[in-house]
Design a protein around this nucleic acid. Structure first.
Lengths: 250, 250
DNA sequence: ATCTATTTGTACGTATGTATT
DNA sequence: AAATACATACGTACAAATAGA
């Protein structure tokens, strides 16, 4: 005789699942109201604490937001890209992902995205990209400035990712840029840096903007490929190591 | 004069963040104990409910597991791949990702993974892959069986992904396989299916196993490329549409 | 600007469930 | 079997935030 169905999930977890199923069944959209605390207590016949814990679970996943006050309560919320990145980052916290791992994918994916973007960006978008270039025009004066410029040059890719029409591709590139930003770079101070290589990266980005503006997908792809290969070589020389992040805030 | 630092996060959320920071600072590993409920109540000077909500947040993110009973309490937990997939799936629930979007990445990534796997799988792994092939040896008798075989053929890729040495690449391929498994296929019943194309896919997988066993990275890559292109064409004929999932359980 | 109503947020005491010894 | 140590659940009371009169 089989066991009488072991309900292994805690009550809050089950309530959270029930609410999610309901959202799907009712096809609710972001912004739609969910029943308030009191209502849920009545419907599920559970205590305030249990219901509140359930809401926290949904909130932690980024699916729900609650507001206090009149007209307040829980609302369906679209999971933000930032939240998704943080949550996924938690997974990789326990894996030892290297910079080389990330570049293995960047070299494949960034050129593909660049090709798809050619001719599809507004002049405003292109101008914003050009404005970003100026953030690392001058050679960095010190280590801190260098790090800031490095992050800024990653923002360039995140900006591009925001315009990708393939949401999976766009998210991924944004995620990788974030992971690289969260990087701690240990570098041998006695070894002179290769500024020429760094400069080349900036020129690649400028050339890429040009190709995107002209709508030349082939050129965009090949420039990006060169850019990624150069960036990979640059990073390899930095003896970089992933910083252990472990945050899923926001 | 700047605002006196608006603490916008709720107390449980702040507690959750504090615990995460502490885990990082103390460099705790999966399996390590966290302070128990009573202890946390004392340390943070907050009520039981607040602390419990904080633990739910961490649990929902997959970072913590709690056990009841003596010797029980909260423990650091490694975020499982399944959890990470579910959490990331929530993000794409609100985006409209198409099958074509997924295949745009699969065509780039699966061959890369295959090449890296050549010669690096144990005979047991290879045997398991071959055993999986038998699950879709015979032509499907009905729609239900066809769907089962389709999922099984995706398992093949998930199994490969489990052996990838690049954790990012491995996760991604597993994620895409899962998304495709969660697919609802609407197909015109009056239109005859292309079983030849389907068969070809199976033959590709067999050839791939052979290449992996021989350690022929180049062959593995090109076979996988052909396999992906075939699979894409197959899927396109299916008028497929992503099922709206919205679950992050487990 | 103040009050008021509404709804979530926090606290705390108690009781129950569960696993270890 | 019993005692112990821990999380889990409940109910009530009160605090804080916000929208509207």
């Amino acid at each position: 005789m089989p066991k009488p169905e072991p309900e292994r999930l805690s009550r809050p977890a089950r309530v959270a699942e029930a609410i999610k199923s309901w959202v799907v069944a009712a096809n609710l959209a972001p912004g739609d109201r969910l029943p308030g605390e009191a209502d849920l207590i009545a419907r599920f016949g559970m205590s305030k604490g249990t219901i509140r814990e359930a809401m926290r679970i949904l909130e932690a996943q980024g699916l729900v937001k609650t507001r206090t006050g009149p007209g307040g309560g829980p609302f369906v919320h679209e999971v933000s890209a930032a939240r998704a990145r943080a949550l996924l980052g938690n997974y990789f916290y326990f894996k030892d992902m290297t910079v080389a791992d990330i570049y293995q994918l960047r070299i494949l994916l960034e050129p593909e995205m660049a090709a798809g973007l050619a001719g599809n960006l507004s002049e405003a978008d292109l101008a914003a990209l050009e404005a970003n270039l100026s953030r690392y025009e001058a050679p960095p004066a010190n280590a801190e400035e260098e790090r800031a410029q490095h992050v800024a040059s990653l923002d360039f890719h995140a900006m591009l990712a925001g315009h990708a029409d393939n949401p999976l591709l766009g998210f991924l590139i944004g995620f990788m840029a974030q992971m690289l930003s969260d990087l701690t770079v240990y570098r041998r101070l006695y070894e002179p840096r290769n500024y020429a290589l760094w400069r080349t990266g900036r020129e690649h980005q400028a050339a890429l903007i040009d190709a995107l503006r002209r709508g030349d997908a082939g050129a965009a792809r090949s420039v990006m490929t060169a850019h990624m290969e150069g960036a990979r070589d640059f990073m390899v020389r930095q003896e970089a190591e992933m910083e252990q992040r472990f945050l899923a805030g926001r």
